[in-house]
């Protein structure tokens, strides 16, 4: 499935060359037909995150302080980890900022 994954608020530092936008092909998990957010998280952890994975995930979800947006909508409204993604969806992972 074609997805756009974006990282911001400092999370991009965990990726190669600190690249923020990634157009990727995420396959469904073995034996499943659909791609869920749970699958996207573990795919991103394995395939995109280059260092300190604990700064991205905790358990099977994102670490505290990270907002996840599916097509510009808080994933909590879309079903969180169980949200089912569709072709060309845009998923944004953004770390909350505290500076000022």
């Amino acid at each position: 499935m074609h997805l756009t994954l974006e990282f911001g608020g400092g999370l991009e530092l965990l990726l190669e060359n600190s690249t923020k936008v990634h157009k990727v092909e995420v396959p469904p998990k073995d034996g499943e037909e659909k791609v869920t957010m749970k699958g996207v998280l573990s795919w991103a952890k394995t395939n995109l995150i280059k260092e300190r994975p604990e700064m991205f995930v905790k358990g099977d979800s994102v670490r505290p302080g990270v907002l996840v947006l599916i097509n510009d909508c808080d994933w909590e409204i879309c079903g969180g980890l169980d949200a089912v993604l569709e072709e060309k969806d845009v998923v944004v992972f953004i770390s909350t900022l505290h500076g000022g």
Partner: peptide
């Protein structure tokens, strides 16, 4: 909030919007 080359903005606890804790119940590491 602002840091580096990014900024974030919202209005909490008004017209049904969440509070900071609704969004971030646990603090980040």
């Amino acid at each position: 909030a602002a840091l580096g080359l990014e900024g974030q903005l919202t209005v909490y606890h008004h017209n049904g919007s969440p509070c900071y804790r609704c969004l971030f119940p646990s603090p980040p590491p």
